[in-house]
C-alpha cells in the first residue's frame, strides 16, 4: 500500500500497478516542472579580488566591473558585501551566483539577528560564515551544480581579538593565509602582496604587520598592476576594511596610470617601421 499522504484517498488508475520498490512515485506522476538548470559556465563575471591582513584588521579590494565575456558590461557593480558588523565577503566569478548568495546570506543574518535580540544567542563570527560558505560550496560542487565563484571572507573575530581571512571556491577548496587573491590576481598580485607582508612581518609572520595606510598602498599597487595586465579589469575599485570597530566599505577610487610609453612601443600591430 502507498502510505504517502499525497496518495491518500486516491484510487489506483486503470492498468497501474503498485511499485513496492518505489512507493512514492508508483502511479502518481510528479507535476511536470521546468527542467533543472545548472550553472555550466559563468556568464557575467567579476575578475580578481584581493585580501591582506594588517595591524588591527583585514582589508579586501575588488574592482567595480562585471564583464559579459570580453565586453565590459556593468561598470558600477559592488563586489564587496558586508555581513553583519565583523565580516565582509568579496566575490569573483559569476555575478548572478553572487547575487543569489548575498540574498541567501542576508536572510540568514537577518534571522540570526532576530534571535540575538531575544536571548543570549551569539552573533555569527567570520569563522562561522566562512564554514557555512565552505560547506555550501562543497555541497553544491558535489551535486554537480556549483556556485561559480571564488570568494574571500575577511573579518575580525571579537572573541579571539584577531583578524580572519579565508578563501573558498566553486570546488569547495578552502585555505587561509595572511594574503590572498583569486583568479588572475593569484598570479599577478600574490607575489606583490606576499613580498610586502613578509618584508615587515617576516616569513613566520611574527613581526609587526603593515599599517592600514601601508596595506591600502600595496592593494592600490596591486590593483594598478592588475589594471595594466588584466584585460577584464577596470580602473575603478573599492576597498573594505574590517577592524574591531566594524566594517567600512570605501567609495570607488582609481589609481594613477601612465600610458605615455605606449607611443614608443613597436611590434604590436600596424606600424610603418
Amino acid at each position: 500500500m502507498n502510505h504517502h499522504p499525497g496518495a491518500w484517498g486516491q484510487p489506483l488508475p486503470a492498468h497501474a500497478q503498485f511499485d513496492m520498490f518505489n512507493p512514492g512515485q508508483s502511479y502518481r506522476q510528479a507535476p511536470k516542472a521546468a527542467p533543472i538548470t545548472h550553472t555550466q559556465q559563468p556568464l557575467v563575471t567579476g575578475t580578481s579580488v584581493l585580501g591582506i591582513k594588517y595591524e588591527g584588521g583585514v582589508m579586501l579590494a575588488a574592482d567595480n566591473l562585471a564583464s559579459y565575456g570580453s565586453l565590459a558590461r556593468f561598470r558600477d557593480i559592488q563586489r564587496l558585501h558586508p555581513l553583519g558588523k565583523q565580516t565582509v565577503i568579496a566575490a569573483s566569478g559569476d555575478m548572478s551566483d553572487f547575487q543569489w548568495l548575498k540574498k541567501e546570506l542576508d536572510s540568514i543574518l537577518r534571522e540570526e539577528n532576530g534571535l540575538s535580540l531575544t536571548d543570549s544567542h551569539p552573533s555569527l563570527s567570520p569563522q562561522h560564515i566562512y564554514d557555512f560558505l565552505a560547506n555550501l560550496f562543497y555541497a553544491r560542487r558535489s551535486k554537480m551544480n556549483p556556485l561559480w565563484n571564488a570568494m574571500l571572507v575577511g573579518g575580525w573575530d571579537n572573541k579571539k581579538n584577531e583578524s580572519f581571512l579565508g578563501f573558498v571556491d566553486l570546488l569547495g577548496t578552502t585555505y587561509s593565509a595572511p594574503t590572498l587573491a583569486t583568479g588572475y590576481g593569484a598570479h599577478i598580485a600574490t607575489p606583490l602582496l606576499r613580498e610586502a607582508y613578509e618584508d615587515k612581518a617576516g616569513i613566520d609572520g611574527k613581526g609587526p604587520l603593515l599599517t592600514a595606510e601601508e596595506a591600502e598602498k600595496v592593494l592600490a599597487d596591486c590593483m594598478k598592476v592588475l589594471f595594466y595586465r588584466d584585460a577584464r579589469s577596470i580602473n575603478k575599485y573599492q576597498t573594505a576594511t574590517v577592524t574591531s570597530e566594524g566594517v567600512k566599505i570605501s567609495d570607488s577610487k582609481s589609481v594613477e596610470t601612465e600610458w605615455g610609453f605606449a607611443e614608443s612601443l613597436r611590434g604590436y600591430g600596424a606600424q610603418n617601421q
Binding site: R141, M144, L171, T173
Partner: peptide
C-alpha cells in the same frame, strides 16, 4: 564542451 570538473589536485 567545457564541462564542470568536480576535482582538483592540491
Amino acid at each position: 564542451e567545457h564541462r564542470f570538473s568536480p576535482y582538483s589536485d592540491n
